[in-house]
Nucleic acid binder design. Structure first.
Lengths: 168, 168
DNA sequence: TTGTCTGCAAACACTTTGCACTTTT
DNA sequence: AAAAGTGCAAAGTGTTTGCAGACAA
């Protein structure tokens, strides 16, 4: 998965680094701060891109230190990071894609059917609609996910021969 | 998957029945109108509920006539129905959920994290937002998908012991 | 007849789990 | 030392595919 090069949502000031926040989360649950968990949080928060379990695992294996965590550990840790509120998970085309949640503002996505890039945007109006709809249905809204699919600016102006290239 | 009992979006007038529309689609592609494809379209359009491949397959097996289509055929036909514009597919919690598209107005969903019901709603404003955002990003929007997750009215007013029951 | 479709079994992709050993506390 | 975590291999889901026989046109 990919993030738009022109990503421009601001970073929100937070008290703790993701690593610290995760450590806190683990401590309150009597879980341990292991080498693998540390490696994973650090890696995940060193880039802002959207990613899936496979990409994370591959990235970890590429580091000079070699393999740092097994596949099951990656999956287990991603689940914990979601529980800790550090990552958000979304289902895209059958697999789970993760993105930073902690310290980043709520936003939604434009998804290019051609190059599969994910572009972030945020809309205050959308939150209004969300509340209005929820009220109408006596529903307690906890979160939402909007994905607008179509063709991105780049793919619209590119030859068809290069249209189906995934942008990293 | 489930549909709210209070579903109230109107049916849109269409020229052809889904069956006819599908036959037309198949003909223009030199595909054949088989017993299985007919059985599936008929079954799918005889209920408005959201469903997944497994449910459809199970329903088909329940008919007095016995098994009417195999699992691979169900998957293949669902893909064709999506291509034909008769069904819409969405990824929910890791699996594909389908709903009627042909003859029904565009809408979005409220998803109850407790009983997993899907409630439909539509919002004209949302389409405005979609266009505005797309324009800002020079993106050509083709479709969108908004899911608001939370707790439905029924689960909010129900004892916790019955909260995690899936509503059919 | 011709070529598509079906069903079967097997393969797939992604994710989770049981268990013996390792590591953190 | 005690308890939790890790990696391995295996098992699960949900979905797709190769192929021989069945069927629509």
């Amino acid at each position: 998965m990919a993030t738009a090069a022109d990503f421009s949502l601001g970073k929100v000031a937070v008290a703790l680094t993701p690593q610290e926040r995760f450590a806190e989360f683990l401590q309150t649950r009597a879980k341990r701060i292991t080498r693998q968990r540390q490696t994973i949080v650090e890696h995940v928060f060193s880039h802002h891109e959207h990613f899936d379990a496979d990409q994370l695992l591959a990235d970890l294996h590429k580091t000079p230190e070699g393999i740092r965590a097994s596949r099951p550990t990656v999956y287990r840790t991603l689940t914990e990071l979601v529980d800790a509120g550090l990552l958000k998970k979304m289902d895209l085309a059958g697999r789970a894609v993760y993105e930073h949640d902690y310290g980043y503002p709520q936003h939604d996505h434009l998804y290019c059917n051609s190059c599969h890039i994910l572009i972030e945007f945020s809309s205050a109006e959308l939150n209004r609609i969300r509340e209005a709809v929820a009220n109408q249905h006596h529903f307690r809204a906890q979160s939402h996910r909007l994905i607008i699919s179509g063709v991105c600016a780049r793919c619209r102006s590119t030859r068809s021969k290069s249209r189906h290239q995934d942008r990293v």
